[in-house]
Write a protein that binds this DNA or RNA. Structure first.
Lengths: 337, 337
DNA sequence: AGCGTAGCTTGAAACGATTCACGATCTTCG
DNA sequence: CGAAGATCGTGAATCGTTTCAAGCTACGCT
């Protein structure tokens, strides 16, 4: 079907194209009779206006307000991770309240996918994005902003962007301090891939606190992922260590839960033999077999704050100044440490 | 910033607009020196082509192919649920392979949000959507298809749409049969909201099998959500039942894990006193404190199949005939039942 | 030298909607 | 009756890209 154009509608209704356009855009300035005639013609021909032409003509709109899709993208590394989905949920709440759609996109830790996803959002003229960056450099960030999208960094400090993050150094510090206060001084840090900034910071915070207290250096166990299965594997590796650590700080709860379960299954008493502290405080932490002591991240709040920042950035336009929101993590004492 | 156009690039590079366009679209027919010069100019000016103009000019594409955004929406009820995210992940795999972006949208069990999300996808001219429907009627389905999107139903049988689902009746049957074979004949079914079709079917399958074996009627415990916390609550309710059931079938694993943990904590032996079977076989099931016996749903495969159906529907166009894919669930025996 | 050809490049004509300066009618009122 | 408004409509110009017939060079061949 060869796209009926405004011209055909005009011919059919016996008016000029300008009038048809007016009916579409400022109906109040067209006489009623004409308006009805045009509308009838539109109906009969099944005309739908060509958005491309409209946009082309309208050019970079003054405030480009309503030519943007009412949607924000939320790019996280792995949506299967409850931490990520909670953050995204917090963001969704804020976006929904403001009348925006939330599109979750998982980058699977791949810079390439991240790039493609962002490109997609730009093409679709999304209003903005929350990005937990994996390969996003300052240059691409600038390019994004150039294109008119507001971008907020999740869980990363940004020099030239708004960001919302949790103070991971403090989190590591709190965990180590807690373990030390329980009399544990041979500590291990269990993580998945060690590169992500937040992980580095947690390790740093823990190591620093440990050093300050004069404990032995932190032993790091690197696993393949932040999953319970890998937590079990970590437990097995842990038991082979000599001397065995007496306190374990896990990079996230999933890992910790798997680890605790495996330890218990092998007859190790938690926390008597080994104390374990997780990170995140996911829902499961509290209802685990041995309820997990962990560092709570205000996840939903984080997402919410990030969303608010993005909305503000968009609303403020040129006058916007980047803000950094840093939320404090918090120790949740349960039974493992 | 007034949108650098192809014309300025041409001026800068000292060539005509046609040539710039050629560099963009058929670089092989432009001499290398010229090409480089143009590319440099593009770089310097930070030119990005105006998609609207491109589309406008290209007119109704042969098969409206690239007028559509290369993206599929995946609408699920709750992305925080590992089941949903696994399904979505399977779909993502298939879409990525085919070169499409995957947009995850959670409807939070709200028909209104579902409607808005779909409307959004239509507006954005997404290629299609996978929908785990909460309020989607046949009429809106038809409207969607009318608009050119391909739509595949997730986990629901569809009369006038492709669908991919797991045979939940069979799942319920398998679970009940397993519990019966362990000598348990007072069975309880624990669920979140009881309305969703798949839940109804699981209960049905279990009830039928139980009836056939002449056991007592199935007791249903309805909780507020399919979460571990609610599983704990269910455990407490369970213990107050008189006579206490000897076998429990949970509508999902999260519920089952919370339930088992709480039972164990209260000194109930699982499976000796109460056998428990979950549903889904999420990763955590295997690494739980007491590894969970469960009904595995081929989640990723489900998502993958659904995605393939959607891609096929789109590729086949008018000649397409709806297909129903039904996958079989499978018993995974671990320790709880 | 003359001619054909291959390889590049050019520039104007679309695409479909919006805008806006201007005309055409119709009212109103001195 | 005629002029000034008011009210509607008109149609050409425009947005940025792609397309394509036609032009230009340089080269090889006879």
């Amino acid at each position: 079907m060869p796209q009926t154009s405004i011209r055909e509608v005009a011919r059919r209704a016996g008016v000029s194209v300008g009038t048809v356009s007016n009916v579409l855009n400022r109906p109040e300035m067209v006489a009623e009779a004409t308006r009805d005639r045009v509308r009838a013609a539109i109906e009969e021909l099944g005309f739908v206006r060509n958005e491309s032409a409209r946009r082309l003509r309208q050019g970079p709109a003054p405030d480009d307000a309503d030519r943007r899709a009412r949607a924000f993208g939320v790019l996280v590394e792995d949506l299967a991770n409850p931490y990520a989905s909670d953050v995204a949920r917090g963001a969704e709440l804020a976006f929904e309240e403001a009348g925006y759609e939330t599109l979750w996109i998982s980058t699977g830790y791949s810079p390439e996918r991240e790039r493609r996803a962002l490109e997609f959002l730009v093409e679709q003229r999304a209003t903005g994005a929350l990005v937990n960056p994996v390969g996003l450099g300052p240059d691409s960030l600038a390019a994004l902003r150039e294109s008119g999208m507001s971008v907020v960094l999740l869980d990363r400090a940004g020099t030239d962007a708004c960001s919302a993050q949790v103070d991971h150094v403090a989190g590591g510090d709190i965990a180590a301090a807690r373990l030390l206060s329980l009399g544990r001084d041979r500590l291990a840090f269990v993580t998945g891939r060690p590169e992500p900034q937040p992980i580095v910071e947690r390790a740093e915070g823990a190591a620093r606190t440990l050093a300050k207290a004069g404990g032995e250096p932190l032993v790091t166990l690197t696993q393949d992922a932040l999953s319970p299965t890998e937590g079990q594997a970590a437990a097995r590796r842990l038991l082979e260590l000599d001397p065995m650590p007496t306190g374990v700080f896990c990079a996230n709860d999933l890992l910790a839960i798997g680890l605790v379960n495996e330890l218990v299954k092998r007859g190790v008493r938690v926390p008597e033999d080994i104390a374990v502290i997780g990170y995140d405080d996911i829902e499961l932490a509290g209802s685990a077999a041995v309820p997990l002591t962990t560092i709570r991240q205000p996840r939903r709040e984080l997402g919410w704050e990030a969303a608010e920042l993005a909305l503000a950035e968009y609303a403020e336009g040129a006058s916007h100044e980047h803000r950094q929101v840093v939320l404090a993590p918090e120790l949740v004492v349960r039974e493992t440490g």
